[in-house]
Amino acid sequence: MIEVKNLVRTFKSGDRTIKPVNDVSFELEQGTLASIVGKSGSGKSTLLSLLGALDKPTSGDVVVNGVSLASMPDGKLTEYRRRDIGFVFQQFNLIPNLSAVDNVMLPMEFAGIRKAVRLARAKELLEQVQLDPEKHIRRINRLSGGEQQRVAIARALANEPKLILADEPTGNLDEQTGEHIIELLSSLSRDHNTTILVSTHDRQLANKTDRRFRLQQGRLTEDPARTRIAATAPA
């Protein structure tokens, strides 16, 4: 259960201030698969970073299972990111000189999981995102954009987080692989009761989510029914 309460994030650029997140409130039940769509620059990444405790809101609060992020000290926020959150960055943000497996193992190392267990799980996750086994030990900067994106997804799943925040997770993938990733995410929400919030430009992905949000000039609105979007959107 995640509650977002009157979240505001403003940036100053020169003498004018922009509000990519402007009084955003919503709630997500545990196990929900939700999506946010919106134009480029509408504030999707900014909102996700606030939910993921990467950034601090100008005002408002995020309450996760009854605990307010605003009241957490930095050390607890780090723990929250490590244990409760899986973040898939728009720019992947993998460690370039480490291999795919090592990157996926990192969050588990920080969580204190034994090496053998980490390795086994990392390999399993990379298989789930359909990365060629021969590329598991390849350094990140020798993988393609789509391959890197899948490593980033695998890394986000490493510590079995309760909440996955994925910033355009299929942006660099072909249709077939993208569909597979969507399947993977929906099975996680269905079978593991994981809450998943994805930002996307991909209508096909958005259509498969339980709830669909739209971000426009910092304001969040929800598309009420799944069928309406599906009906009005030409294939």
Partner: peptide, 16 residues
């Protein structure tokens, strides 16, 4: 800097 930010973003404690 950026890489350190990544490590923090995925939950690495400062001391690590």
């Amino acid at each position: 800097r950026r890489e350190i930010g990544v490590l923090k973003a995925i939950g690495a404690p400062n001391r690590t």
